[in-house]
Amino acid sequence: MAEAQFKVFRGEGAKGELFEFPVEVTEGMVVLDAVQQIQSRHANDLAVRWNCRAGKCGSCSAEVNGKPRLMCMTRMDELSLDVPVLIEPMRGFPHMKDLVTDVSRNYEINKKIRPLTPKPRETDGTYRMQQEDIERIQEFHKCIECFLCQNVCHVIRDHSVKEFAGPRFLIRIASLAMHPLDTLNRLKELKDVFGLGYCNITKCCTEVCPENIKITDNGIIPLKERVAGAFYDPLAWLWKNLTSNSKKIPEKNK
């Protein structure tokens, strides 16, 4: 059985250091398995979050060799085991203990988003929506709230910007703004409360998303276009509102 070395960050409140542990490697093993092996054999009190072990819950986010990843979906055979594997907590959030960070800010931002305000049901009591009209939003609904995108976004890391919602919540607002049933106009708050304008489309968020959601191309950019249309081009805005259901995704983004 092969053996690997792991260097795991341990400590509290950002104070800590890397500790080295041996790991016995078995076939098909993922990084989370290795961390749990360390926990059960060498460091019983090693703090780490996990739940589903299958990339479905978004709990096990960390930085593996400096890259933000889900530990349960990172196979050991993707990594070079000639050098120690480095496991650190997400850097973009306040540190709590070992691999666990304080992600509570995300929950606070989410609370500020106004909930879906649906139009009334059809006379037969149903809602009718066509599959092709919801496909784009279903993509955003795949989000498992791993917060890796929030972790890498430089606007969030630059703590001077307070009102930026971050990629995860911009696509959540996009999923409401493009929802066939929603009746609210969310464009003003996108600009004023959620700081859409701060995003300069570096696409770092899209690159790390384990659900492969095209956060920027399919979410943020269309929102930016709508906001620009609404606030900087009154004629276009009027035209859009008069001619069609403004919820429709602009043709060119389909």
């Binding site: 879906l116 649906p118 009591g125 149903t126 009718r128 929506m129 066509q130 279903q138 609904h141 049933l181």
Partner: peptide
């Protein structure tokens, strides 16, 4: 189940949009 639609859930649809 259908109450969830009012709260934002988006289930896969039939051809009739249900």
């Amino acid at each position: 189940v259908s109450e969830l639609e009012e709260w934002g859930a988006l289930f896969d649809r039939t051809k009739e949009g249900l």
